[in-house]
């Protein structure tokens, strides 16, 4: 039996630009199962990022409800949302979004500090995930001393460090070349396959979308297709 982890129920997001109202999402209904690997696809401006931000509790819908583990996040107080973001969700952004004044290690450590984890345990865990993404030797580098691919691996490590159930990645390969991009997607694939994470990613690249298990296609703020990916790709080797 599949259990629903995330449910969007009649979700609207309307951005107000002064007098003009821009509807980015127009009545989205979707259930995402625990342990699924979802790729959200669609043209630019179709509302993909908007949907990700809502799922990730970074923003609240204008209308409708969003359930995360059967809790309606639209009614939760700010501190609970922060806790959800910290413990249940790991973010990977297109522009990596690392803190520039901190080393790779400190960046990865930060989510654990925010969760009040003990120092010893936290630094052990941070080193562990940095090793997982293959950056043990560069963990004392600042983001400016790392390549784009390495920075994205730091950001993946940061998203993993709190052992979240859900990984959200908004165009994680957008700033990378195709080889590095593929490596990142393959890392996500393994997290889904081996660690049992629920992974949701946004991508433009239909080749990369082939790694996902489910495809959700958006057009003009509406879901036009939800389908199982019959020819799911596996990483080589």
């Amino acid at each position: 039996m599949k259990d629903t982890l995330i449910a969007l129920d009649g979700v609207w997001k309307i951005y107000k630009m002064g007098e003009v109202e821009v509807p980015a999402l127009r009545g989205v209904d979707v259930d995402i199962n625990k342990g699924d690997f979802v790729a959200i696809i669609g043209a630019s401006g179709s509302g993909k990022s908007t949907m990700m931000n809502l799922v990730g509790c970074l923003d609240l819908p204008s209308k409708g409800k969003i359930f995360l583990k059967s809790k309606d996040i639209t009614t939760l107080p700010e501190s609970d949302l922060a806790a959800l973001r910290g413990r249940t969700i790991g973010f990977i952004f297109q522009q990596y979004n690392l803190l520039q004044n901190m080393t790779a290690f400190e960046n990865v450590l930060l989510p654990l500090e925010l969760q009040d984890m003990g120092d010893g345990k936290a630094s052990e865990r941070a080193k562990e995930v940095l090793k997982l993404v293959g950056l043990s030797d560069k963990m004392h580098n600042r983001p400016s001393q790392l390549s784009g691919g390495e920075q994205q691996r730091v950001s993946i490590a940061r998203s993993l460090v709190g052992d979240p159930e859900i990984i959200l990645a908004d165009e994680p390969t957008g700033a990378l070349d195709s080889v590095t991009g593929r490596e990142v997607i393959e890392t996500l694939y393994r997290l889904w396959k081996d660690e049992g994470k629920t992974v949701i990613m946004v991508t433009h690249d239909l080749h990369l979308a082939e790694y996902a298990h489910t495809h959700i296609e958006l057009k003009d703020g509406k879901i036009i297709k939800i389908a199982k990916n019959e020819k799911q790709k596996k990483p080589r080797g």
């Binding site: 990730g56 700010e78 501190s79 922060a82 973001r85 413990r87 973010f91 979004n97 690392l98 803190l99």
Partner: peptide
């Protein structure tokens, strides 16, 4: 924004 995204409270 980054800190909030990774769990910082207000």
């Amino acid at each position: 924004g980054i800190m909030k995204a990774i769990g910082a409270r207000n």
